[in-house]
Amino acid sequence: MSGLSERALLELVLTGAVCGALGVQVVLRRLAFFTETFGHITFLGIVAATITGTDIKLGAGLAAMCAVAVTSRHGIASRRNHQHAGVMVSGALALGVVLISARPGFSKDLTAALVGSPLTAGTGDIAMATVVAALVAGALTLGHKELALAAFDPGATRALGYRTRLIDSGLLALLAITVMTAAPAVGAALPLALLIGPAASALLWTRRILPATLLGGLLGAASGAAGLAVSLHYRVATAAGTAVICGALFALAAATSTLTADQRRACPSPAPATSL
């Protein structure tokens, strides 16, 4: 295996592990739409950074944090927030396309920002993925009880004195950072596959959050490695290959899950969210 392939494998394994583990919280809280929103906002940040000649990671990070600030204002369960997210999805994508079309010659360079290019991942990308992996692992470990309680019973969480909006904002910030870090591997358009596929598969095989988190991380890492293998063997886009692997994994989990229909409805299925 060449040096490029080795770096790509490490980047995809790290990204897949982080996305798979954090994705359990995304599935439990039904935040898939917000994940898609962050992906589109990140794409806009990358486009703007490229046009202005600044670091694309800085542009993506600033855009993602702006999205977190807007989303956290009313709480992730707010109906108004879902309306805001819908506007941001369409608006960010449209503005990114407008900026690209206004600068001829940029389309080819920004294709990697949209669908990823792990074979061009450098040591800086891998270092950032490692730091984010450690950050997410630490946050999920230290905040396991609070995250689980806030996901299933926000009212009880507030009654116990926890600041639910702070918990929600922290989770959204982790999600935004993860989406930003995943851009070199799977672009801004396909992080949802790695965040949802492995986590949803894990939750079909186990009802317990901690084992599901560990299993989701393992499945995410395996999906990233398998996606790269498919890409190199069949000469297809790596991000697309990884997304296909995630879909196939979920189909396998659904077909082999031993959970009953009642158990599947019970987990993951948090208590009805209320506006915070």
Rank of each mutant, 00 (worst) to 15 (best):
L62D: 01
M1E: 01
G59V: 04
L58T: 07
A151M: 05
A32Y: 04
R29G: 06
L135P: 07
A134G: 15
G20V: 01
V98E: 09
S72I: 06
S169R: 12
G161E: 00
L259M: 13
R79N: 08
T258P: 09
L259G: 13
G241L: 06
L249A: 00
D153P: 04
G220N: 08
Y234N: 07
G197K: 03
K108I: 08
L142Q: 09
T141N: 07
R29S: 02
V24G: 09
I51T: 09
A69K: 11
L12W: 03
V179H: 05
T260R: 06
I46E: 08
G59K: 11
L219F: 12
P211E: 00
G45W: 08
A92I: 13
T35G: 15
R264W: 05
I126P: 02
L4E: 10
V27Q: 08
A202F: 09
I56S: 15
S275I: 04
R207H: 14
L195W: 02
A212S: 00
I196L: 14
T111S: 14
S201K: 04
F250V: 01
A253S: 11
G20W: 05
L44R: 05
V24C: 10
A255D: 02
S72D: 12
A243L: 00
L62G: 06
M128Y: 13
K57E: 10
P198E: 04
A159Y: 03
G59L: 06
A148N: 11
A92M: 08
L93D: 01
A225R: 06
A229D: 10
A173N: 07
A63Y: 07
G138F: 03
R103K: 15
T111V: 13
I209P: 12
F38W: 07
L140T: 00
A199W: 15
V236H: 10
A271H: 07
A148C: 13
G220Y: 02
M88V: 08
A185I: 02
A137D: 03
A49V: 02
R264S: 08
G241I: 08
T274N: 04
G224Y: 03
Q25V: 03
E11F: 09
I76S: 12
G197C: 04
T242P: 04
T157W: 05
L228H: 00
A137Q: 05
L166G: 12
Q83A: 15
T71Q: 11
L160T: 15
A102H: 08
K145Y: 11
A255Y: 10
A94L: 15
T50M: 12
K108E: 15
E11Y: 07
L190A: 04
R29V: 01
A92D: 10
V27C: 09
V131S: 09
R7P: 00
T52H: 08
F250C: 02
R158G: 07
G53W: 12
A102D: 04
E146W: 10
A243K: 02
I51G: 13
S117V: 10
A60H: 00
G16H: 03
A222K: 02
G59H: 10
A255G: 09
M88I: 12
F106E: 07
Q263D: 06
L9K: 04
A237P: 12
L140S: 00
L9G: 00
T35L: 14
A182V: 03
L249W: 06
C246T: 13
R235E: 13
G105K: 14
P198T: 02
I209W: 09
T37L: 09
G217R: 09
A225D: 05
A139Y: 15
L44K: 02
A222W: 12
F34Q: 11
A237G: 14
A185H: 03
